[in-house]
């Protein structure tokens, strides 16, 4: 049981890492033009908004997909 719990915890960690990779990818493309010598305020808030809006988008799409499945 301990082994199973450990494996599930590690799997969950790996999933979160995967999501962080994907989010950084999307928001980097969305917000970063040419990399400068500092992360300016505008880019930083673009990135944090990007994460929030991306998660809103995923949620909205999940809801819509469930509606669609019910209609079928």
């Amino acid at each position: 049981h301990e082994m199973q719990q450990f494996l599930m915890a590690e799997q969950q960690k790996a999933q979160i890492q995967q999501q962080l990779h994907a989010l950084t990818d999307v928001c980097w493309e969305k917000c970063m033009d040419k990399p400068r010598d500092k992360l300016d305020y505008r880019t930083e808030s673009c990135i944090s908004n990007c994460v929030e809006r991306f998660m809103d988008t995923t949620k909205a799409i999940g809801v819509r997909l469930q509606q669609k499945y019910k209609e079928m």
Partner: peptide, 14 residues
């Protein structure tokens, strides 16, 4: 450096 900064901002927001 900026990519790692972005990774940190993303992690915090997430």
């Amino acid at each position: 450096d900026r990519y790692l900064d972005s990774w940190n901002v993303v992690s915090k927001s997430y």
